[in-house]
């Protein structure tokens, strides 16, 4: 028996011909069956060592190690260096103060961005919390932000929980739209060359674009095409809106190419579809615990087979599902 065929069988990856070979081999003798049983048992035994739950409980320990860490001081300088530095800072602050009162304040641009590997939770100076999805960026001018102008620029997807402040509206600009709010929570999906999606979890928001000025209430959602200015509004469920905050990846009537596009956006990897994409439509959400578990869940729920390499994901329909 060839190892490739046997292990593919154990992983339930065999095609029909391979399955037949293994079945024949198993029927050959009792000992062949024993070998398979021993291997499968061993696999279960190994897998019993840890699951996602164990990972979560042990994370606390790792986190404790992360928190105990004191920022390393590379070499200890004599005390007078510190006081000299402190004096210098005081002087320059004074100069800065004078400068500030003579000229208009210079902009202090801040740009926070995520890659395909990480998400971020950002707390802005006014206490507003922003959950930034993969491959997204948030920009704002720190000085203006602190004064009166609560304005940020978003490229990508994010969930906002805006701290209420009646006299200071909070503005989110994307490529085509501007969302103005006072104190609410809402989500925005705004990537270049793509349909924008804005939905409200609580409060009221105002959305403006080239040919658009609309108020949205909780559970309401709009899809806006920045090119054709086509607008689609409907209502949606709360967990879909807060998906970014709750670390969920959401699919809604997505076929294989659409699933592939979402995956490639989230994880920044090329997604290749093998074979003819049959009609599948998948609706549901997956807890985002990393690429492997997500694909595992997807393969189970949507009947998609997957293979991960360093920078690509290969999706194909399960052979078993083909007639």
């Amino acid at each position: 028996m060839n190892e490739k065929i046997l292990f593919r069988y154990i992983y339930e990856l065999s095609n029909a011909a391979e399955r037949e070979m293994v079945t024949a081999w198993l029927q050959q003798s009792e000992r062949n069956r024993d070998i398979l049983v021993a291997l499968v048992k061993r696999k279960q035994q190994l897998e019993g060592a840890a699951d996602q739950q164990a990972a979560d409980t042990h994370w606390e320990r790792v986190q404790a190690a992360m928190n105990e860490e004191v920022p390393a001081v590379k070499n200890i300088r004599p005390w007078w260096l510190y006081s000299a530095a402190a004096a210098l800072v005081t002087v320059s602050m004074g100069i800065g103060w004078l400068w500030q009162h003579q000229h208009t304040p210079a902009a202090q641009p801040v740009k926070l961005s995520t890659t395909g590997k990480n998400k971020q939770v950002i707390t802005l100076p006014d206490g507003t919390r922003v959950w930034l999805q993969y491959n997204s960026s948030l920009e704002y001018d720190a000085r203006a932000f602190n004064n009166s102008n609560r304005q940020v620029i978003l490229n990508g997807a994010a969930f906002f929980n805006v701290n209420g402040s009646p006299d200071k509206p909070f503005r989110v600009s994307t490529h085509q739209t501007t969302v103005t709010v006072l104190g609410t929570s809402f989500s925005i999906h705004a990537r270049e060359h793509e349909m924008q999606e804005i939905a409200v979890a609580s409060g009221k928001i105002n959305v403006q674009a080239a040919q658009l000025n609309i108020n949205l209430l909780p559970m309401q959602r709009i899809k806006y095409d920045p090119v054709t200015h086509a607008l689609l509004s409907d209502s949606t469920s709360l967990d879909r809106i807060t998906a970014v905050r709750d670390n969920l990846l959401v699919f809604e009537n997505d076929d294989l190419p659409s699933i592939a596009r979402k995956l490639s956006q989230w994880y920044n990897r090329d997604v290749i579809i093998h074979g003819t994409p049959h009609r599948v439509s998948f609706t549901g959400s997956v807890q985002d615990n990393g690429i492997q578990p997500v694909l595992e869940g997807l393969s189970f729920l949507a009947g998609v087979e997957y293979k991960i390499t360093a920078d690509t994901i290969i999706l194909s329909l399960k052979r078993n599902h083909k007639k």
């Binding site: 060592a49 998400k119 690429i291």
Partner: peptide, 15 residues
Amino acid sequence: VLYDEYFVLVSRYCY
């Protein structure tokens, strides 16, 4: 993210 992706595998391998 790194931890989530690999903790389970590493534990199983250690076992």
